[in-house]
Design a protein around this nucleic acid. Structure first.
Lengths: 350, 350
DNA sequence: CTGTTAGCGCATTCAC
DNA sequence: GTGAATGCGCTAACAG
């Protein structure tokens, strides 16, 4: 372990003062070409790594409190967006020595008008940075361009939008999600049986980007293998229990060869509960994310597997990256990342 | 986000000086009962959280370089113990602002004498802390009691030993490992087929703790379900390729109903390669950890699934915890932990 | 036993 | 354009 150099030592080696080195490091201007060259030279030859801890301490002196606005869908406790929120709050608490003022602006994930309203209010507010969900593409595009005008940086969680470059973006690879779902369904159900691919029925709005990607990847998996499976696509209500029960049991009555149900969103527990309510057993059910409801069904044995997109980490990293950006400017590495996917069964839950 | 209090502010509220607050916080003695009570009172009412960043900065002043000795099995690049090592090195580099001097003492994982020799040399060396593997129980017990005598703290990776309380211990729950292996094998192979449970043939030494736990948990899973599967236990060589190929193909010839092979150590790629060499396909193979060889077989499709024990994290957390202990003394939370298990298929590799 | 003080590495004035 | 000086919150050594 090579001993770390300090700014002061770099300065000495370059024949300048610490202040100048700092100016070079953070390119905050006004450095003569010669000084610049000298410092750069030492820097590259000595692989300097500055000390984040100290830096954070020194920053406190300036007492500039950061204002962070977070706009994501509201959510019941333990549901998907609440997990993202949990991760955000954890990061906020871990970095509480930079005093950060945070404000949530929630919207209804099934209502684009509510999203637009939320985003409009943000565009007017004054803040240091924004973290947002990208469920609605035009709304996101609009907000981002307005933030760009004000020079306010923003980060995405759970998704991205073609053509926009946020400072940070943490999400799961939706194509990989769909293929993994297909692989697990294929492995856990007997050959020759059929599969169902379920998505929620939405009111008014178009299908979410994420669901669409997962579905096409799911089907692609089997197409590549010569369509060895019959896939039934169906929609279901996420809210009305009576309706769900009827839909699910009706569907299985009409399609008796179905041995597995893949749910493309995080509400798979709804299906598990419907099956249990109708006394149907032996159907493999799989879905996404370790929400409270899904974890319960996994434990109860009515749900077979989950694909974890790590919503908490998405939230955590988004905050971390935005902070990093605000303090130290752009850094090339790992500000945009597809998080790894985990498979969760009853046996490795927690 | 409540604004953070500083030690100085706490001191003011308690009517004492910052130095006294520091003494209370780290109970480094010599504080009058009254002062103690006053500070404790303020502390609990104001939920003070001291600033780790600043603390780290201040520590540098003392220039006491920490000496860390790490004793684990040597390992080829990309193998299990090398992954643990990777995690250790990452932590060492992340915490390089505390200047830490580290030294590895490797031993042969298949030779207890080599372990004893390594541990003996450590017991004589002077250092601040030790991180070690617990493969050999008597050797570990011996070393720990000698370290205890010198007051040198130590941490375990990959396992634990009954009756010893290290400062930190990061490992996977071996019982859960075995059950998960069983669950996956059961799910991925057709009902009615048989399974094989393979362990490495060791020379001289007893079976490792971890392997034994996994095997019994594996069998327990099926026993609970009324022995719905026939399980064949078998040993295999890990080094001699000719021998392995003969063993594996011979075994399958004698047991034609076997549809899945579960390997209880991280060398499952050896089995996959043997199957491929013999042109045998259609057998489900599962094992442990994303080593270089296993990852290759997963990609090639000759290995079906892996259970990831997160060796890198084990190493990382061990270093982190030991450092935390050395700087701030014992802390109750999360110094001993069973890491979560992940399931890795070709579709979610990396 | 306790308060005071110096200094960790860095960011940021403020003179020159 | 640049260097010197100040202080962030905290630790540790020292004087009382």
């Amino acid at each position: 372990m090579a001993q770390q150099l300090t700014i002061k030592q770099i300065a000495q080696l370059a024949g300048v003062s610490a202040g100048t080195v700092d100016r070079v490091l953070h390119n905050r201007g006004k450095v003569s070409p010669e000084a610049m060259k000298a410092v750069r030279g030492v820097l590259s030859s000595q692989n300097y790594k500055y000390n984040l801890h100290t830096s954070a301490v020194a920053f406190r002196k300036t007492k500039k409190s950061l204002k962070l606005i977070i706009s994501i869908p509201s959510s019941e406790k333990g549901e998907y967006w609440d997990l993202i929120r949990t991760g955000i709050d954890e990061a906020l608490s871990e970095y509480n020595d930079f005093d950060i003022e945070s404000k949530y602006v929630f919207f209804d994930q099934f209502d684009s008008a509510s999203c637009r309203e939320a985003f409009d209010s943000i565009a007017e507010a004054s803040c240091s940075a924004v973290i947002m969900a990208t469920l609605y593409v035009p709304e996101t595009q609009d907000l981002c361009s307005r933030l760009d005008k004000h020079g306010i940086p923003y980060a995405f969680v759970d998704g991205s939008v073609e053509g926009i470059s946020p400072v940070a973006c943490f999400k799961a690879d939706q194509h990989a999600c769909g293929r993994l779902l297909a692989r697990l369904m294929d492995g856990f159900t007997p050959k020759g049986k059929e599969l169902a691919l379920l998505l929620p029925r939405r009111t008014g709005t178009q299908m979410s980007n994420n669901s669409a990607s997962r579905m096409s990847a799911f089907k692609e998996y089997f197409t590549e293998r010569g369509k060895v499976r019959t896939i039934h696509e169906a929609q279901f209500s996420v809210s009305n229990v009576e309706e769900i029960n009827a839909e699910v049991s009706g569907f299985l009555k009409n399609n008796p060869l179905v041995a597995g149900i893949a749910v493309v969103i995080s509400h798979s527990y709804v299906i598990s509960d419907a099956l249990a309510a109708s006394g149907i057993i032996g159907i493999v059910v799989g879905g996404f994310d370790v929400t409270a409801g899904n974890a319960r069904c996994l434990r109860e044995g009515t749900l077979d597997f989950l694909i974890n997109q790590h919503p908490e980490r998405q939230g955590f990293y988004a905050v971390e990256s935005i902070l990093h950006y605000l303090m130290y400017g752009a850094s090339d590495d790992m500000l945009k990342e597809n998080l790894p996917l985990d498979i969760v069964l009853r046996e490795n839950l927690q």
